[in-house]
Simulated scan of single mutants.
Amino acid sequence: MESNQTKPGLLCNPEASQRTLYPYVTGTSVVALKYKDGILMAADMGGSYGSTLRYKSVERMKPIGKHSLLGASGEISDFQELLCYLDELSLYDNMWDDGNSLGPKEVHNYLTRVMYNRRNKFNPLWNSLVLGGVKKGQKYLGMASMIGVNFEDNHVATGFGNHLARPILRDEWHENLTFEEGVKLLEKCMRVLLYRDRSAVNKLQISKITEEGVTISQPYSLKTFWGFSAFENPTLGAEGSW
């Protein structure tokens, strides 16, 4: 019987037994959109140990090569495993030294194949991934689920963001968004998620990727309001008999 404990070796050592039988430390939603000059992506920095908000400084967005930006929700250790795979892919790509490099579409296709392959082995990576990038003036934004389901769109979200952020994006997104408008729209989505998602924390980062490269902001908090007038007058606006 195969042991579930990790054997000594490198993170990507194929001889090691590394199986996530159940997600333990997880991150919540990632929200991303296209704007006029590139891609904007937002994620908070919470890491939940079960239902406990255990970690408050988990970075879940990473640059991949020269042209791509990856964000992930779900199991943090599986995200680290994926980053190891992508490091090996980038190293192999650079070894050709042919003046070309992998674009966001190629990286996204690779990730969907990895997720689908692991799903078929009944050993999935417990993540939902968002991959955005810009290469030769072409903006690209797509997502991939833990079972390999994938698509491209002008705006994407994972986790609770699919239910709470996408309706906002459908109403307010347009293709000529400026950087400031895009950041404001993402902050609106993240504020709604903070209010409604118990796994969200008020410490987030927003990343952008353009032809010039990737920029990830320093962590910051959103202004929030937790007042509720009904506490002062619970019958205010009520109709009918009690």
Rank of each mutant, 00 (worst) to 15 (best):
M146A: 15
D171M: 11
D171C: 08
E180S: 12
N123V: 06
E152T: 15
N154F: 04
H155Q: 13
K184G: 04
A157C: 11
S199L: 05
A200H: 05
W126D: 02
N162I: 03
V134F: 02
S199V: 00
M146C: 13
L164Y: 13
A200R: 06
N127M: 03
K139D: 12
L141A: 06
D153F: 14
L125W: 04
Y195Q: 07
F160Y: 07
S128C: 14
P124I: 09
L164P: 09
V183C: 10
E152F: 10
F122C: 15
D153S: 14
A157K: 06
L193E: 00
H163T: 11
K136Y: 14
G132E: 10
L169C: 00
Y140E: 15
N123P: 06
T178E: 02
L186G: 03
M190K: 00
L194V: 08
L185A: 08
T158L: 01
R196E: 00
F151E: 10
V149T: 14
G137H: 14
W126A: 15
A200G: 09
Y140D: 08
L193R: 08
W126I: 05
N154H: 12
V156T: 08
N120I: 11
R170S: 13
V134A: 05
F122P: 04
G159S: 09
W173M: 07
G148K: 11
L141R: 02
G159L: 02
P124W: 06
R191G: 04
V156C: 06
G137A: 12
E172Q: 12
K188V: 03
S199G: 09
G137W: 14
K139I: 11
H163V: 10
G142W: 03
K135T: 13
E175C: 05
D153Q: 15
K135E: 15
A144W: 02
G148Y: 08
L129Y: 01
M143D: 00
R196V: 02
V192I: 06
E180C: 03
N176A: 06
A144Y: 01
A157G: 07
G137C: 10
C189D: 10
F160H: 04
G137V: 13
